[in-house]
């Protein structure tokens, strides 16, 4: 495994001989049954997604085409453990330009959701999620900011309803997902 250090977050590149035993032939079917992943088999590896990807331009490791190919090949562990998966900015350029209508960004989201189930949640998402569950807002808006609104002539900020959110998200087991071990 070759690790490329770039600006804080590690970008992990793995270069190794593929072993047939590392491949899970059912993985692509699993993905294709999840909403957003339906078209995984349609990718013919033209590379439009990677060449048009703004992040790929500056990242040494993030390559959407590779992620799609690894998924097709069933390299489940490698894909889901890959840190570069999380570099997708979800700008949807790949999705809009794919000649096969593969919905690349949606597939990457499906893979991230699976990675979370496997226990990998980047710390930033835990912070955002706990703020949403506690306050309704993705950021903990400081009291000072809320008070300043009056000074600025802005209407008071509506309060979130954490009880309602707790009820709604209990059944999908959202809190449990976040308790999973991080990194």
């Amino acid at each position: 495994m070759l690790q490329v250090e770039k600006g804080g977050a590690k970008e992990t590149e793995q270069r190794a001989v593929l072993k047939i035993t590392d491949m899970d032939p059912k993985f692509k079917y699993e993905i294709s049954k999840i909403p957003g992943g339906e078209k995984i088999m349609l990718c013919f590896q033209c590379g439009t997604c990677t060449s048009d990807c703004p992040v790929a331009r500056f990242s040494g490791a993030y390559r959407p085409r590779q992620i799609i190919r690894m998924t097709q090949l069933g390299l489940k562990k490698r894909v889901l453990e890959s840190e570069s998966l999380w570099l997708c900015a979800s700008c949807f350029t790949c999705t809009d330009r794919c000649p096969q209508d593969v919905k690349v960004a949606d597939i990457i989201r499906v893979l991230k959701n699976l990675a979370v189930k496997e226990g990998y949640v980047p710390p930033v998402f835990k912070v955002l999620a706990s703020s949403i569950l506690d306050t309704g807002y993705a950021y903990r808006i400081p009291e000072m900011r809320i008070k300043k609104r009056e000074e600025l002539g802005l209407p008071s900020l509506p309060k979130g309803n954490p009880q309602s959110l707790a009820k709604l998200t209990e059944r999908i087991g959202f809190k449990k997902l976040l308790e999973a071990k991080s990194e």
Partner: peptide, 27 residues
């Protein structure tokens, strides 16, 4: 008009849980 008791649109949670995103937006 001010929207009472609204919450995060859902987008930041899509990478973690698509279902969570749908619920936040739907609410």
């Amino acid at each position: 008009e001010e929207m009472p008791e609204f919450n995060c649109c859902g987008l930041p949670m899509d990478p973690v849980s698509h279902e969570m995103m749908l619920l936040l937006a739907a609410r």
